[in-house]
C-alpha cells in the first residue's frame, strides 16, 4: 500500500477493559493500516475484537497503549472535543440496530450531522436530498423510524452516515437485523457509494453475505489479526 494513501494506521495497539479487580485484553499487539477508498472488514467470532477495533478507529474509544492514527489525528491522545470534531467532519457510522432518533423524521435524522456542521438551510436541504436519492428514500422523508421497515431504516442510517461525504465510514454488523434480500440491497448500495464517493468503508461482521462483498478481509481471533488478505485469496 502506498504510504501517502494511508488514512488509518494502528501500530501495536492494546486495549484492556477492566473487569472487577482484573482486566480483559480485547486487542493484543494490533497493527494494521487502511488506504483511501478501501472496502474492507474485520471478521471473526464474537469476542475476537472486531467491534473494539472499529470503536478505536472511530474515536469512540481509546487504546490502552500503542498508536492509532486516523486521518492525521492520534486517537491515543486526542481530547473529547477533538474526537467529536473528527467524527463530525470525517467519519460516518452505520450500526447494527440503525440507531435512528425515533422522534425525528427521516429528513431530520439525516439532517442532524449537518446541523452540527453549521450549514445553511439551503445547503443542508441540497445535501439531504442527494443522500436520500442515493439510498432511494426520497418518498419517505416525512416518515418516522417506527414507520419504516428494517431495510428502509438501515438505508436512512446509511444516508445519515454519507450525507456529509465523510472520508471514512464504519459499519458495525450492518446487516445483522436484515433479511437476505435487504442485506444484498444494502451491501450493493454500499459498494456503489464506495465507488461514487471514494470513502473508505470498514466493516465489523461475521455475516457471510457481507464478507462476500468485501475487497479485503481481516480475520481476527482472540484480539489478534490472524490473516489479512484480499477477497479472492480469502475465498
Amino acid at each position: 500500500m502506498n504510504q501517502n494513501n494511508v488514512i488509518i494506521q494502528l501500530e501495536n495497539v492494546v486495549k484492556d477493559y477492566r473487569i472487577g479487580s482484573g482486566y480483559f485484553r480485547a486487542l493484543k499487539d494490533f497493527s494494521i493500516s487502511f488506504g483511501h477508498g478501501e472496502f474492507a472488514g474485520f471478521i471473526g467470532p464474537s469476542g475476537s475484537g472486531k467491534t473494539t477495533a472499529l470503536n478505536i478507529i472511530g474515536s469512540l474509544d481509546q487504546p490502552s497503549s500503542g498508536t492509532c492514527l486516523v486521518l492525521g489525528e492520534n486517537i491515543s491522545t486526542i481530547s473529547h472535543r477533538q474526537a467529536a470534531n473528527l467524527r463530525n467532519h470525517q467519519i460516518g457510522f452505520i450500526f447494527q440496530t440503525y440507531n435512528l432518533l425515533p422522534v425525528y423524521t427521516v429528513y431530520e435524522n439525516v439532517e442532524f450531522p449537518l446541523l452540527l456542521l453549521g450549514l445553511s438551510d439551503t445547503g443542508r436541504k441540497k445535501m439531504i436530498t442527494e443522500a436520500l436519492e442515493m439510498v432511494g428514500l426520497t418518498d419517505k422523508i416525512d416518515s418516522r423510524p417506527a414507520q419504516l421497515s428494517g431495510g428502509q431504516a438501515q438505508r436512512v442510517a446509511i444516508a445519515r452516515a454519507i450525507v456529509k461525504k465523510p472520508a471514512l465510514i464504519l459499519a458495525d454488523e450492518p446487516t445483522a437485523n436484515l433479511d437476505v434480500k435487504n442485506s444484498h440491497n444494502i451491501l450493493e448500495l454500499m459498494v456503489k457509494l464506495n465507488r461514487e464517493l471514494g470513502s473508505t468503508f470498514v466493516f465489523s461482521t461475521h455475516d457471510p453475505k457481507v464478507i462476500s462483498y468485501l475487497q479485503r478481509i481481516i480475520r481476527l481471533e482472540d484480539g489478534r489479526i490472524v490473516s489479512d488478505q484480499p477477497q479472492k485469496q480469502e475465498l
Binding site: G58, L60, H80, R81, A84, N85, L86, R87, N88, H89, I91, F93, N99, L101, F112, P113, L116, R160
Partner: peptide, 16 residues
Amino acid sequence: YGEIGVRLAIGESHGT
C-alpha cells in the same frame, strides 16, 4: 444514554 451515544458518534461533543 443510547440517544446520547448516537449524538456523540455523529460528532456532538460531550460538553454540548
